[in-house]
Design a protein around this nucleic acid. Structure first.
Length: 295
DNA sequence: CTTACGGCCTGGGTGC
DNA sequence: TGCACCCAGGCCGTAA
């Protein structure tokens, strides 16, 4: 499941080969994950790649249009759950569920494969790009501790939901959220406004450390993820809580638990990450009052 | 403002 | 061996 470190790894791989290249041909398979497939087929051929950017989980190929007047376009790609983007020789075997082929002027090919098609692709002019990318939150590895604390500490929502909310912080998914919370020793159901200063600082540092370490190890390959050369990452070997229900906490030996927080599977250590108390106490009290009224 | 939930889509696992 | 069922979770739209 591609999150920030996986998308960053793919972006770096593409950055090594794509800039300067011209797209010579486009072939599409299923197109229900593409905003406007006709626009892609019309505008991509002849365009030249100027650069490759990543914003959160979005990948942007900056393009100069074919029409000679220097029009700037961006090919937005989101890998969703199972998206893969690889460069290869055109004669390489085609993986099942490959739905886009971009032939390049150096004879190579860029392919987009996505089993579940939760991904997204769109070719957009600059104004339209801003519309999609503008609402995104802080880039986790560029934000300061003060910015992070200001965004997180003013929200009455569970930290799990806040970390996953792309409008607060861009790029975190379920894996890196749980790994960061474990490292920071913060329970996923704590509320943003209730985090103490030192907890907020630990969380900020944990997010940075986990993401940087995952990028260094080229991402986590749980089921489908591979980089732009088709290679898996290695951070899954360093996971401390994700998908480790019932196994021992690396810090204290307590059995890791799984609960649903903000609609997501959340793995945590019940000893290192103490549960918040206020919410349970309050709902308990109101239920008691209700029962008394009914008598 | 917030949270909850269903929908999208496929493959892999489980149980009968 | 098949088949029904559930689950994984990115993000969006809708409802409460």
């Amino acid at each position: 499941m591609p999150e920030l470190p996986e998308v960053e790894t793919v972006a770096r791989g593409l950055r090594a080969t794509l800039p300067g290249r011209r797209v010579v041909q486009v072939r599409l398979g299923k197109t229900d994950f593409i905003d406007d497939p006709a626009a892609l087929e019309e505008k991509l051929p002849g365009s030249r790649v100027r650069g490759v950017r990543r914003l959160g989980k979005f990948l942007v190929l900056d393009l100069e249009a074919a029409n000679g007047n220097g029009e700037r376009l961006g090919l937005l790609i989101h890998l969703g759950m199972t998206g893969q983007i690889v460069t290869c020789a055109p004669e390489a075997p085609v993986a099942p569920h490959t739905h886009a082929f971009l032939a390049l002027d150096d004879g190579r090919e860029v392919r987009y494969t996505d089993i579940r098609r939760f991904g997204r692709m769109a070719i957009l002019a600059e104004a339209k790009q801003a519309e999609v990318l503008g609402p995104l939150g802080l880039e986790p590895l560029e934000a300061s501790e003060e910015e992070f604390a200001a965004r997180m500490g003013t929200r009455r929502a569970r930290v799990k939901a806040l970390l996953l909310d792309q409008h607060v912080l861009r790029g975190m998914g379920n894996i890196y959220t749980d790994e960061s919370l474990w490292r920071a020793r913060v329970h996923p159901a704590r509320l943003g406004t209730n985090l103490k200063g030192d907890e907020m600082r630990r969380l900020f540092r944990a997010v940075r450390w986990v993401l940087a370490e995952a990028i260094r190890l080229r991402g986590s390959s749980i089921s489908d993820y591979v980089d732009s050369d088709g290679q898996p990452g290695e951070f899954q070997l360093r996971h401390r809580v994700y998908q480790r229900e019932g196994k021992k906490c690396f810090r204290c030996g307590t059995a890791i638990r799984r609960v649903i927080v903000a609609g997501r599977s959340s793995y945590f250590c019940p000893r290192c990450q103490p549960a918040p108390r206020a919410r349970a106490a309050r709902t308990g009290a109101s239920a008691k009052r209700k029962r008394q009224r009914q008598r």
